[in-house]
Design a protein around this nucleic acid. Structure first.
Lengths: 143, 143
DNA sequence: TCAACTGTTATTATTATAATTACAGTAAGC
DNA sequence: GCTTACTGTAATTATAATAATAACAGTTGA
């Protein structure tokens, strides 16, 4: 699976956690441990879907624009990584005179699509708030 | 996701389809459209789990050693690609003095594990026989 | 003893992914 | 208006994951 989903979820959880619900790409990038340009790319995607707003120029950055307890990981997955369950390589050989060789590509493709839908049913039940709470709960157990 | 799962399923479906339930790595490789050595590697894994038997030497090859209607894709996934849902890259920064940065890695890891379990519940409902039937059904619709 | 196989490892090629650089555009504050 | 601190985006480079290939020892049947 594509790691832009991870970056998107991490960024939203971070924004939800911060008292002012704001951060710059530099701050997020340090927190996530990646490059600011990559964060901006992923956040651009979240902005288009309305999950965050951005403010350009000095003093700018990203701000949460949704309720963390209403946004599910399924939405974020669809927005960032839809279809990434399926491996890019696929089997099958149309040259062969064999039903299996000719049709397996499409049949497996269909299976991966259904498997992804099933996974989305799980992600549907998890919100950004839930993830934040898991983070906080984990800390409490350890302290 | 790892494509060895695809190769394993394709190979088992092919064996189930063939009247003698046998094939060499060359034959499977042509059908799947990959290299025979790769097929042998995947089949080695299936042999260890008892899904196929192999016969070395001249006239040898692979033979199905299970009932196609009893083997589920979940088993094959576990045998070949367990854990491959999770991206190798992960977010988080232990250097940061922030709960989110420090704990997100583990929390996301847990989420990917659960998502994979959910996907496995779907693969549990599909057998090699079901896949073969989808292949055959597809052909009938098109002819 | 030859030919046709598997088993396995090592090497190379290819592709996917992530990091980095670069720079135009925007807004705030002096 | 100028400087500074940001975003947006594209192009390039680096790295890692994946697949293909080659090579060869071991096995078996004819």
């Amino acid at each position: 699976m594509n790691s832009e989903f991870t970056i998107a979820v991490h960024s939203l959880v971070l924004l939800a956690y911060r008292p002012d619900h704001m951060a710059t790409s530099d701050m997020i990038a340090h927190n996530v441990d990646t490059h600011p340009a990559r964060v901006r790319k992923v956040m651009g995607c979240l902005r288009k879907q309305g999950y965050v707003t951005t403010k350009e120029g000095s003093g700018g950055g990203f701000a949460l624009n949704c309720r963390p307890d209403e946004v599910t990981l399924a939405e974020i997955y669809r927005a960032t990584s839809f279809g990434s369950i399926k491996p890019s390589w696929c089997s099958g050989n149309l040259e062969e005179d064999c039903l299996v060789a000719c049709n397996m590509t499409e049949v497996m493709d269909h299976i991966f699509t259904e498997a992804e839908e099933q996974m989305l049913m799980y992600l549907q039940r998890l919100t950004i708030q839930d993830v934040l709470e898991r983070v906080l709960a984990k800390q409490q157990r350890e302290s």
